[in-house]
């Protein structure tokens, strides 16, 4: 967890852009007892993000009053946002029933993503594909369960694989495409969208920050200072941009989760 290692990865005289090594985090206490080796920086940040989400919801909704004050104002705006932008448009009349799941998913992922621009932490946890995969699998299992429960085992797969109105021989050719698209590529693209955005964003931020650090602090020259200043400005601009992208990706992940839940509840025609 050495900061110089992160900021300037090259040991020689030439500037080296940060690579994949900025995503590798060993145990937080390598000299500690072996039962503590699961505690890495990503797991610490996940726990922190979960704690923030719990505290936020607790402060906002515990002992809610008719006339909101304090955190309850923020909580109600957040709740209305998720309900009117995600739950009701995607799930229709079932939307309000699914609000607890969608609200907590959205804010857990949002806080995890925003950890990427919090000083000292600086790591969007979803840039490790393990975390988005787990979320996507949870939604996927829920979708399968709901689909089989509401449409029946045969009916669910029939609705999925055989869109009505095609000539019979074509079903043999097109059914594998439908099956692969709905059963395998859906959770895959669902998680990869979140993962790839966080990964690329973090890499971009690290690149500009290390350009600024290298040319302004480590190797300050007249010509290099210009590059360093560009890197410094771009770091600030990209941080603002990342704030937006991180919120957008959390929103899209929740939107798609709602859409998949809906596809389990009702067959699309």
């Amino acid at each position: 967890m050495s900061a110089p290692h992160l900021l300037a990865s090259g040991s020689g005289d030439e500037f080296e852009a940060p690579g994949l090594e900025i995503f590798h985090w060993g145990p937080l206490f390598p000299d500690g007892p072996s039962w503590l080796h699961w505690l890495t920086k990503p797991t610490l940040i996940v726990a922190l993000a979960g704690l923030i989400a719990i505290v936020f919801a607790w402060r906002a909704f515990a002992g809610a009053q008719l006339v909101p004050r304090g955190m309850q104002n923020v909580g109600e705006v957040a709740y209305l946002f998720v309900r009117d932008q995600v739950a009701r448009p995607m799930l229709g009349r079932d939307g309000d029933r699914w609000m607890p799941f969608l609200f907590s998913t959205f804010f857990f992922i949002l806080f995890m993503n925003w950890m990427g621009v919090v000083p000292v932490l600086y790591l969007p946890v979803n840039s490790h594909i393990a975390f988005p995969i787990v979320f996507a699998i949870a939604v996927y299992v829920m979708m399968l369960f709901l689909g089989i429960k509401h449409q029946g085992l045969v009916g669910y797969f029939k609705n999925m694989m055989f869109p009505p109105g095609l000539p019979k021989p074509l079903y043999v050719i097109l059914a594998p495409i439908e099956l692969l698209s709905n059963l395998i590529l859906r959770p895959f693209t669902h998680s990869v969208r979140l993962f790839a955005n966080m990964f690329a964003g973090h890499l971009l931020l690290a690149f500009f920050a290390s350009v600024a650090y290298w040319f302004l602090v480590e190797k300050l020259t007249v010509l290099g200072a210009g590059v360093g200043i560009v890197g410094f400005v771009m770091t600030i601009v990209m941080t603002a941009f990342e704030l937006f992208i991180q919120a957008l990706q959390a929103f899209i992940f929740t939107l798609l989760a709602a859409s998949y839940i809906q596809s389990g509840l009702h067959a699309d025609h």
Partner: peptide
């Protein structure tokens, strides 16, 4: 749509 196209190419 992207996952349909990807799965067609994959199959």
């Amino acid at each position: 749509i992207p996952s349909y196209i990807l799965s067609g190419m994959a199959v």
